[in-house]
């Protein structure tokens, strides 16, 4: 009697209603808005695929979209290299279990608890060309030639932002790698040593294959995170994502289009919804991939 269908649904419904109403429905319904012409005020007009034509074929929208996609891809690749590779190294080193490493783990994770906006502001100041610490430090160690306006130059701005972003988030993939390393049975390493394997062999033939699913999960999380990022760019370069759109990503393009920009371009919710649809399709692929990994993990654990 106690385990009844009725009891099950009574327990599930409160969460399900909130989750569907304020998360799933808005996601789907926002995409629906891409078929309407709508400035946010007044009446909506159904226009079929007009917004898609506008986004993909008309300047400046198509140029901005291509530029944002390119920047997002660059942001993703550079984050994979400087954030996730570093996280893997840190996790492997921490795994050696020398004294005091537990405290280091806590420190490495700390920046991910700080607001993205604050991290953005803080790094804007670090990069300040006149009195920012970075140029000061470069000057002090005799590298004056490298001093520059990091956020003001088209060639360095996005990389500089990616560095700030990685500074904040390295701790999260690191934790996932630590958890992954913890679950590798010691016997595998012992078997490798018995066969005369070196440290490198252990890394190459035991650690990396065992971490494959964690690596994929981290890559997918990074992909989804970067393709929905907004705040870090907003904090460091504003909604215009300067200089000259060099740091414009889908998130900033969406915000500017939907809610209007300071330069006076009027809000266009319909076109904004169309950009959101493009983002959802890209991110949706990532989410499905990620879910599949979890299904595999679950079944391989035998639970």
């Amino acid at each position: 009697m106690k385990r009844s269908k009725r009891a099950f649904w009574l327990f599930v419904l409160p969460s399900l209603i909130i989750y569907v109403l304020f998360m799933l429905l808005p996601l789907v319904a926002s995409l629906g808005l891409s078929f309407f012409e709508w400035s946010g005020y007044g009446a909506k007009k159904f226009v079929w695929f007009r917004n898609y034509v506008k986004l993909f074929t008309e300047a400046p929208n198509n140029v901005r979209l291509g530029n944002a996609l390119k920047n997002n891809l660059y942001f993703f690749i550079i984050t994979m290299v400087i954030q996730n590779l570093l996280a893997l190294m840190l996790a492997i080193f921490l795994q050696r279990g020398f004294r005091g490493f537990k405290a280091l783990r806590t420190i490495f994770f700390a920046p991910s608890t700080v607001s993205v906006i604050i991290v953005g502001f803080l790094w804007t100041l670090i990069y300040n060309p006149i009195w920012g610490p970075l140029n000061n430090i470069l000057g002090a160690i005799g590298l004056d030639k490298l001093q520059m306006a990091w956020l003001g130059s088209k060639t360095t701005a996005l990389t500089a932002i990616a560095v700030a972003n990685a500074w904040q988030y390295t701790g999260i993939p690191m934790m996932l790698f630590v958890a992954g390393l913890n679950s590798i049975p010691n016997e595998l390493y012992e078997a490798c040593s018995v066969d005369g394997g070196s440290e490198w062999h252990k890394f190459r033939y035991v650690t990396i294959p065992s971490l494959k699913s964690v690596l994929l999960i981290v890559a997918t999380m990074t992909f989804v995170g970067n393709f929905s990022s907004f705040e870090i760019i907003y904090a460091m370069e504003g909604t215009l994502a300067g200089p000259n759109y060099a740091t414009d990503v889908l998130g900033t393009l969406f915000y500017r289009t939907t809610f209007g920009a300071r330069t006076g371009s009027p809000p266009d919710m319909g076109l904004g919804a169309t950009i959101a649809t493009v983002m959802s399709v890209l991110i949706g692929v990532g989410v499905l991939f990620w879910l599949r990994l979890y299904v595999k993990e679950d079944s391989s654990e035998g639970k």
Binding site: G32, S228, S280
Partner: peptide, 29 residues
């Protein structure tokens, strides 16, 4: 505590929310 297809489906429906960025729905919200 409950088992079955519906339970599994619900589990993954909620699990997906761990990685879906809710901000994509901001227009409708």
């Amino acid at each position: 505590r409950y088992k079955g297809k519906t339970v599994n489906r619900l589990y993954f429906l909620f699990l997906a929310g761990m990685i879906i960025p809710i901000r994509l729905g901001v227009l409708f919200l």
